[in-house]
């Protein structure tokens, strides 16, 4: 049972009498060696930064001031956030954006059932609906920007052709900009949700449907009594990841609208970026980051409690 400790530790093996102890020691050392690259990386790049964010949230500081310029202001940043119209607007837009989640979940569920049960060439459909999800958001956003071009873009040309003389100006119109971005976001997210739903459908035992057939249940009853409830763990997972991902929306805003026009598409991460890296208000931006972190944490914790109540396993 000579374990090859030398290769791990370059230490001479311990004396024979303490073999069991040294074996365990070798295991511990090997364990640490294997997990340490990840642990060190995560500590330096994630754990220390999140602590720093929490600390900086209580500071009034600007990148250009240097370390001496730092001033501790207690909860002042958070108090200011409550009165900051742009921040409130960002949170409000984030909340409106939540609407995209049930919409794309519903569309994906219907498409998943159709693709799983009622079509030929399944894998074509899986790929086709997945393409927007794997495509570079920046490039996709650029394409949509041109498609939505108000005066001569293809979408408005088409709308004019079918008789709508005064089509919306889409991302150039404060009333439509957020909705436009939400539509694109739905379009991108369908692929991911669809794939997960198909996997969920395939895990439902077939004999349940056979039994329902024998009882003479119609399609709608089967959906209501079998498919929908048995998909609930999948739906729950998608709901949680979907909600969390709406809090992270950034690329598409940064490329298409930069939060505009007149703040109509600003969202938390965009406002955080704008405050930190454009206006250089590091302390204030950190307090936004803290709020963002708390939102995500709250949803994750809420998920743990809700899971028991809502999901049929």
């Amino acid at each position: 049972m000579g374990q090859n400790i030398e290769t791990l530790t370059k230490k001479p093996p311990a004396a024979g009498g303490r073999k069991a102890w040294s074996l365990q020691k070798g295991e511990t050392l090997a364990g640490f060696l294997f997990v340490s690259p990840m642990l060190i990386g995560v500590s330096i790049l994630v754990l220390i930064p999140i602590i720093a964010t929490l600390v900086l949230g209580f500071a009034d500081w600007n990148f250009v001031q240097g370390w001496e310029g730092i001033r501790w202001v207690g909860f002042q940043n958070f108090i200011n956030l409550l009165e900051d119209e742009m921040f409130i607007r960002s949170v409000r837009n984030n909340i409106i954006f939540l609407l995209t989640v049930p919409i794309y979940m519903l569309v994906s569920m219907v498409l998943a059932i159709l693709i799983d049960r009622y079509v030929y060439f399944k894998s074509y459909f899986k790929i086709a609906y997945f393409v927007p999800y794997v495509s570079m958001t920046v490039a996709v956003a650029v394409v949509w920007q041109v498609l939505f071009q108000p005066s001569y873009g293809p979408i408005n040309e088409m709308l004019k052709a079918i008789g709508i003389s005064d089509p919306p100006k889409w991302i150039a119109d404060p009333n439509f900009a957020l909705i436009s971005i939400m539509m694109i976001s739905i379009w991108i997210s369908i692929g991911f949700n669809l794939i997960i739903y198909i996997a969920g459908l395939q895990s439902i035992p077939k004999d349940l449907y056979e039994a329902a057939d024998i009882d003479g249940a119609n399609g709608w009853t089967k959906f209501r009594r079998i498919t929908f409830p048995l998909l609930s763990p999948t739906s729950f997972f998608l709901l949680v990841t979907g909600i969390i991902s709406t809090f992270k929306v950034f690329d598409i805003i940064a490329v298409m609208t930069q939060g505009g026009p007149i703040g109509s598409t600003t969202m938390m991460v965009w406002y955080l970026y704008d405050t930190a890296f454009v206006n250089l208000k590091v302390g204030y931006a950190s307090s936004i980051a803290v709020v963002l972190f708390l939102f995500v944490l709250l949803i994750t914790l809420g998920q743990w409690f809700a899971q028991k109540k809502w999901v049929n396993y």
Binding site: L39, L45, V269, Y273, A276, F293
Partner: peptide
């Protein structure tokens, strides 16, 4: 510890990462 870091949104730590 590794599990905890999974809950942290990447954008919440951009500023310290930048300073680092």
């Amino acid at each position: 510890i590794v599990l905890i870091t999974y809950m942290i949104p990447g954008q919440a730590i951009l500023i310290p990462q930048f300073i680092l």
